[in-house]
Design a protein around this nucleic acid. Sequence first.
DNA 1: TATTTTCGCTAAATCGATTTAGTAAAAAAT
DNA 2: ATTTTTTACTAAATCGATTTAGCGAAAATA
Lengths: 342, 342
Amino acid sequence: MKKASLSDIALRLGVSKTLVSFVLNGKAKEYRISDDICQRVMDVAKELNYTPNRIAQGLRTGHTKTIGLIIADIANPFFGKLGREIEQEAARYGYNIIFCSSDENPEKSAQQIAMLQQSQVDGFIISPPINSEDQIRTLAKGQIPFVLIDRFFPEIDCNHIVVDNFDAAYTATKHLLSLGRRRIANITLNLDLANMKDRTDGYKQALRDASIEVDENLVKVLPFSHENKDVALAINELLGKKDDLKADAILFSTSKIGIMAIECISSLGLKIPDDIAVVSFDNTDAYKICVSPVTVIGQPLKEIGKTAMQILLNEIKHPGVKVKTQKVTLKTEFIVRKSCGS
Amino acid sequence: MKKASLSDIALRLGVSKTLVSFVLNGKAKEYRISDDICQRVMDVAKELNYTPNRIAQGLRTGHTKTIGLIIADIANPFFGKLGREIEQEAARYGYNIIFCSSDENPEKSAQQIAMLQQSQVDGFIISPPINSEDQIRTLAKGQIPFVLIDRFFPEIDCNHIVVDNFDAAYTATKHLLSLGRRRIANITLNLDLANMKDRTDGYKQALRDASIEVDENLVKVLPFSHENKDVALAINELLGKKDDLKADAILFSTSKIGIMAIECISSLGLKIPDDIAVVSFDNTDAYKICVSPVTVIGQPLKEIGKTAMQILLNEIKHPGVKVKTQKVTLKTEFIVRKSCGS
DNA sequence: TATTTTCGCTAAATCGATTTAGTAAAAAAT
DNA sequence: ATTTTTTACTAAATCGATTTAGCGAAAATA
């Protein structure tokens, strides 16, 4: 027994499928279908267990009620939680999410965008990898609404939602300074990503404002696809020196870096915060139960996800209406725990 | 400028869209399209930047190259990592993943299954919540292939991939016993879930095999939607007693429980493993940098995801061919760290 | 030369919905 | 009694692909 279609119901009742469509879409009144027929259609629909074929609807109407989500890695709790918020908000309006992990790889994201376009998604939410400017520019010229999250390209005018990374890093660094740390390091990712650059800029500015010269040896920039050994190397370079050259604090620009780094620090037998203070971006679970719970910069994931969907749904609902692009910058939350001492 | 369709190419060249379809699907030889026309079709396709409309293809062919994934919560790193593996394997074959978080809520999962069916997914991968037996049974009667992961219902004959939970818990408990622990507790979730039940059963069996009577006061069963306070209560009941009634070790049946519990234990000023030894299911990042890195039962996420997709794709490729249902049980990996002492 | 085969291609049905334009019959208005 | 309006519905186009059946011309065979 295969799925019932509109025609099946129409055939069964000897009416047109137009009528059936009207009834099942709640347009019975509008098209003055008689109450009697109306009821019978609904009865048969229930009896045959009819559900609309969204693919057919999509072909005809041009919208699929599907959103494409491209992030770096759904296995990364930061993106996982963000994905969850987006899913939740989308579900409220009957939208599904197709997710793609780009691994920060622009070729992958290009291919994923293409595939999602072929799947006729109604919109995109993208956390664009480095060197994907062209893809985003092309997207901006097209008809499909999209919103960038987590990062953006300052030179491209399009919707995006980010946090105030500069301010967050500035605050975190000032916090370390206030606790007497002077040789504060920063481990970050490829600085071509706007959000990463802002974090390091904020860190540097805080140092400068405290009249401390920025020591470029204390800024470690990892490749996108960083692994344990990359982090280990950076940690060794920061901590394996003579006392007065050694770092006494580190700001991690992502939690993925931070977790690897803390693992590494522990295995060196060093204690946080006594030997080294740490602060990290992203309030991930791991930091709560850490050797010394980590002071973090928490991002408003719920708000990011919700706002992104809202902007997207609004554009989807009003196609062609070119409203001003939405550029939202949200505040982070600085959560002090024990990893910086006191 | 909107997207080019087959007809656009056909019109431009003054040929039929049948021909264009043949050429672009690599059937030119088979239908003996002349090389000349063939080339011109491809040129125009490129010029117009043609990409097929998967929705239209889906309507006509009946398959959408889309898989529905229903798990408890994509923000939970366990499911996030699993999702990632599934996505990766799916992508290799040109399949997209629509994900849905059920929150272990059967009403939600029922609705999600319905929605995904309407979206004409080619198959499902589901981690079924408690009380969703009927949904799965209905699914089993239908035509759409599916695979259960993480848990299954013993009484329903369908594809599933799980790990040997009994054995894993047994091993973990024996490990604790071998280190001299005697009052070993277990914090778990609603035991109606087959995987949770197996874990607790394995734990109990290990105790019995060591001639230790199972003390039901040491088994704490949390509600599905457990929060910090539920875990805190359980921990208090286990550790807030006189010395000889107190637990000296705990097996956490999920990492979500474990993380909350360890946070709670720390806040009580207790030390792991001195005051209390812990072992947990799931090798989540948090456990690596924990106060005392946690000994865990790691699940073969890559293999689970890969196998699930393989089984699914095989059934999708051979519809109607009712092969034997695949019931796979994979081994876990016991990773000893420092949380049990020595 | 007549017939068959091959070649190169096309018409049209189909998937399952939505939607525009319209129609026949009944009721209301003139 | 005629016209107009309303009522209750339907036919057919459409979205963009796939696929079956078949057609006319050229080439091969008889």
